[in-house]
Design a binder for these strands. Structure first.
Lengths: 344, 344
DNA sequence: CTGAAAGCGCTTACAG
DNA sequence: CTGAAAGCGCTTACAG
C-alpha cells in the first residue's frame, strides 16, 4: 500500500486522494471548512488503505497523547475491574486509550513512578482511585507537572480538583429504610474503620433513617468493624449473643456482611428467617453465597465513564468562586435486594 | 529548565552536559561505547533536569512504542486484575507501559477495534486472555498486522504462537490426591462445561489420581456442571441425595464449589465434618466464605509477568522444526488448603 | 569513543 | 475552502 511497503501514512492518503496532507489531517480531525466532496474522497481513500494516523506522530506534533492514565493500588480487584470496564469503553468511543499503572500507596519511589509515567507518556489526563486519590504526595506530583486528574470516590473533595462519587449517606439511608419497611425495629449496624470517610457516611445514613422513623438509636447495636470478613464475624458474634438480639444487621460493607452470615450459621440462626442481613458494595461474592446478599451497588463503571468524559471534554472552569458546579459529580447508586433480607 | 520553558528535551540535556544529543541518547539507551566520565556527566544533568525521554518521539523515530497491549473480555474481574498486577509491575521494571482494552468476544466490529488499537498505538506486543486468545478472528487480525502476541491460558496451544499456562491436569490430580490422603474414597467430581478444555483437563487429573490409588472411577459420582454457582448447587443436590453419598466433592471451579457449600447447608450437612469440598481457581470469594475453600491457585500474575518478558525479550525463534522449546511455558500452581476439607 | 545529518508521521501556525 | 513550510523530540544509519 505505502510507498515503502510499510503501513500507509498520511502522505500516501494525500497522494491517492489528490489533496495535501493538511486536508487529510483536517478530515481526520473533523475540522470544519472542508468541502464535502473533498471529505468524501479522502475518507474513501482512508477506508481503502485502512489508514489510521499513528498516535506517536500525532502526539509529538500536536501535544496531545490521546492517552488516559489509570492509577490504582488494588483496593479490590472488583472495583478496579469495573473502573476499567467503564473507562476503556468510553475511551474507545472517544478515540482515546487507557494506560494502567498499579502503584503501592506507600512505595518509597512513588514520586518517581508517577514522574516516569507522566513525563514519558504525557497522558492527557489521569484517573485516580482510592486510596491513591487521597494521597497528598500523588496529588502534588501530578499537579506539579500539570496533568489533569479526576478523583474517583475520594475521602473528601478538594477544591478545584474534579471528582466523581456516589452518595454513601443516602444509600445507607435507603438500605436501612428497606429494613425498617420490612418491619425490623432492632436493627444493628456494623461500622467501618474510623479512618475511612465512607464509614462515617454510612453510619450517618443509618442513623438518619432510624431517626426519621422515630426509632431510638441504641449505641449497643452499633459495633465497630474494619471492613474485613473477620471483623464482621466477630461483631456479629457480639451482637447475636445479646439477651435481646437484633432482627436485622446492616454491615457497612459486603465482606463484613459475609462474616455476619458465617456467624449466624455457626450459631444456628437462619438467614433471613431469624435474621436479615444487608451489606454494601455488591461485591462479586455477594451474589455467590446463600442466601445472596441484599446490598448497594456503587455505579463504578459509570463513575469511570464520567471521569473519562471530564478529562476529555474538560469541565467548566469559569465558575464563580465557591461554585464548584460540575467539578464534583455524584452518581446514582442502586439498591440490590436479594435473599438475605425478609420481614421480621 | 528548557530553552522555551516547557519540559526539558534531549537538546537541553546535551547542551548542559556539553555533548551531542546522540551521546545523550546512547547513555539513556544503555548503548555500549560511551566513556564512563561522559556517561556520568550526562546522567548528572539528566538527574538535575529531571529529564525523561518522550515516548512519542522515541516511538516515532525508533519504531518501538514501549507499549504492551492487554486485550481481555472480562472472564472474571479477579483474573484480569491479577493479570494486570503482574503485567504492570513487570512493564514498569522493563520501562514499558500497559495499555488495556476490553473487547466483546462476539462484537461485530471486533476486527476494527483491534485494528484501531494496533495501528494507532503500535504496541510492541499484545497479551491475550481467554476467551479472546482462542478467537481465530482476533488472532488473524493481529497476525496480519504483525503484532507479536502471547496467549494466556489458551484452550490449546498454536504452533508458533507463544503462550503461558498452568498444568490443569496435574493440579486436579494433586487436589484429588489431597482428598485421598485425607482418607476419602467416595469422591465426587463436578465437571466443567464440555466446550472448555480446562474441564477435560481437570477431569483427567481427577481420574488419574483415583486410578493411581486403585480407586474405582464411579461414573455416578461424576456430575456435569457449567462453572456456575447454580450448576454446582444442582449437581451437589443430585450427589448428596444418593443412598450412598460421597464424603468429598471436587468441584472443577470455585463458583461451583460455593454451590456445593450452599447445597450442603440446605441439606443440613456440615462441611467439613460430614463432607469435604474442594474447588479450583482460588477466587476472591473462596477465602470469604465459611468454611473457607480448599482450592488451587493459578499463578496468574506470574503468567502475566512471563508474558511481558516473552514480548520484550522475544523468544528463541531458531528452533528445530517441531521443537517449540520455550514458546509454550507452563508455570507452577499452588495448592491452597483451607477449612473445607478434612479427614473423612 | 563521539557527532552531524536525515527522517520518523503527524499538527501547528501562516498564507492564499 | 486548500496548501507549503516548519517543527515536535527523538533514533537510525553513516562518518570519523
Amino acid at each position: 500500500m505505502s510507498a515503502r511497503g510499510g503501513s500507509p501514512t498520511i502522505v500516501d492518503v494525500a497522494r491517492e486522494a489528490g489533496v495535501s496532507i493538511k486536508t487529510v489531517s483536517r478530515v481526520l480531525n473533523h475540522e470544519p471548512g472542508v468541502h464535502e466532496s473533498t471529505r468524501d474522497a479522502v475518507l474513501k481513500v482512508v477506508e481503502a488503505l485502512r489508514y489510521r494516523p499513528k498516535q506517536s506522530a500525532r502526539s509529538l506534533a500536536g501535544g496531545r497523547s490521546f492517552l488516559i492514565g489509570l492509577l490504582y493500588y488494588d483496593p479490590s480487584a472488583a472495583f478496579v475491574g469495573s473502573v476499567q470496564q467503564g473507562a476503556t469503553v468510553r475511551c474507545r468511543e472517544l478515540g482515546y486509550h487507557l494506560v494502567v499503572e498499579s502503584l503501592h500507596n506507600d512505595a518509597p519511589d512513588l514520586r518517581q513512578q508517577i514522574d516516569r509515567m507522566v513525563l514519558a507518556l504525557r497522558p492527557d489526563g489521569m484517573i485516580l482511585t482510592p486510596p491513591l486519590c487521597d494521597n497528598p504526595e500523588v496529588l502534588a506530583a501530578l499537579r506539579e507537572n500539570g496533568t489533569p486528574c479526576v478523583l474517583m470516590s475520594p475521602e473528601r473533595d478538594i477544591v478545584g480538583v474534579p471528582s466523581v462519587r456516589m452518595d454513601d449517606v443516602h444509600a445507607a439511608e435507603e438500605i436501612t429504610n428497606l429494613l425498617i419497611s420490612l418491619g425490623h425495629r432492632r436493627i444493628a449496624l456494623i461500622k467501618g474503620p474510623p479512618d475511612q470517610s465512607a464509614s462515617a457516611a454510612r453510619q450517618q445514613g443509618f442513623v438518619n433513617a432510624l431517626q426519621a422513623h422515630d426509632i431510638a438509636v441504641d449505641p449497643e447495636l452499633m459495633q465497630p468493624g474494619s471492613f474485613t470478613f473477620d471483623s464482621g464475624r466477630d461483631a456479629a458474634h457480639q451482637l447475636l449473643s445479646r439477651r435481646q438480639r437484633p432482627t436485622a444487621v446492616f454491615a457497612s460493607n459486603d465482606d463484613m456482611a459475609l462474616g455476619v452470615l458465617a456467624a449466624a450459621q455457626r450459631l444456628g440462626l437462619s438467614v433471613p428467617g431469624e435474621l436479615s442481613v444487608a451489606g454494601f458494595d455488591d461485591s462479586p461474592t455477594a451474589a455467590l453465597v446463600w442466601p445472596a446478599l441484599t446490598t448497594v451497588r456503587q455505579p463504578v463503571a459509570e463513575m469511570a465513564r464520567t471521569a473519562v468524559e471530564m478529562l476529555v471534554f474538560g469541565h467548566k472552569s469559569e465558575l464563580a468562586p465557591g461554585d464548584d458546579g460540575e467539578l464534583h459529580k455524584v452518581l446514582a447508586h442502586e439498591l440490590v435486594v436479594r435473599d438475605s433480607t425478609r420481614a421480621g
